[in-house]
Simulated scan of single mutants.
Amino acid sequence: MSLPRSNYDPRRVCLAPFPSWSLGKHKRTMGIYLAGGLFALANWTFLDAAILSAHAHAPYDDPQIPPPVHVSFVDWVPGISSLLGLLIINLIDKDRVRGDEGFGDARAVWRARLILFIGFALMAGGLAGSVTVLVLKYVLKEYAEQYQYYGYANVSQNVALMLSAVVLWISQSVSGEYEYNLSI
């Protein structure tokens, strides 16, 4: 498939350009707050599981049996990976990824896109790692539901971090209430 010569731009990577959304006067601010709320919810969920694991005690009917599993460093690694991915994704200048506003250097646009890909790869790796930890550490060993919660909290943390990154990316990419797009 080829584009008409008038629509062809050699700097473009994708055929479909980024959409330009206008969400209204305060919707950009609400999107940023929603992303922050998802970020807080993600980390609160996992910290709840970690604190619950640290204070887990033996069953009341048999005090000689210790809890079978605790949250360890392996459980923290996927969340750290997703958090680094979120930071990398949101530190990228959106205009540089698009190649707009005088960023004529093709290498700078390519590097920005590569770093953006690395950020998304870290987030995808964090999600895959959390699902792997859930299955291998909690589900296959058939622990009680109260111990499987540690794995579910890990997966939900990574999903919420990914959603937070997407919402923040979209919220920061829309035109703000004080921005004007003038064209001749």
Score class of each variant (00 low, 15 high):
Tyr143Asn: 04
Gln172Thr: 09
Ser183Gln: 13
Arg5Asp: 11
Pro63Met: 04
Asp100Met: 04
Leu34His: 07
Ala108Ser: 15
Leu87Thr: 01
Gly129Arg: 05
Phe39Leu: 13
Asn154Phe: 05
Val97Lys: 09
Trp169Leu: 04
Leu15Trp: 01
Arg5Lys: 14
Val69Leu: 04
Leu140Gln: 14
Gln146Pro: 07
Arg5Gly: 01
Arg111Leu: 12
Leu91His: 12
Leu52Ser: 15
Ser72Arg: 05
Leu47Arg: 09
Lys25Ile: 07
Gly102Tyr: 05
Leu161Asn: 03
Met123Arg: 01
Gln64Leu: 13
Gln148Leu: 03
Phe39Thr: 12
Val109Leu: 01
Ala49Asp: 08
Arg11Cys: 01
Tyr143Gln: 00
Leu15Ala: 09
Thr132Cys: 09
Leu91Phe: 13
Asn43Asp: 11
Gly99Thr: 01
Asn7Glu: 15
Tyr178Ser: 11
Glu145Tyr: 06
Phe120Lys: 06
Ser175Arg: 15
Ser2Lys: 14
Arg96Met: 09
Ser6Gly: 00
Tyr33Asn: 06
Ser20Cys: 00
Ala153Arg: 07
Leu127Glu: 13
Ser6Tyr: 09
Leu23Glu: 04
Gln146Ala: 12
Tyr143Leu: 01
Ser82Gln: 08
Trp169Ser: 01
Tyr138Arg: 03
Gly176Cys: 00
Met123Ser: 11
Leu38Ser: 04
Leu15Pro: 07
Trp169His: 04
Ala153His: 09
Leu34Thr: 15
Met162Cys: 14
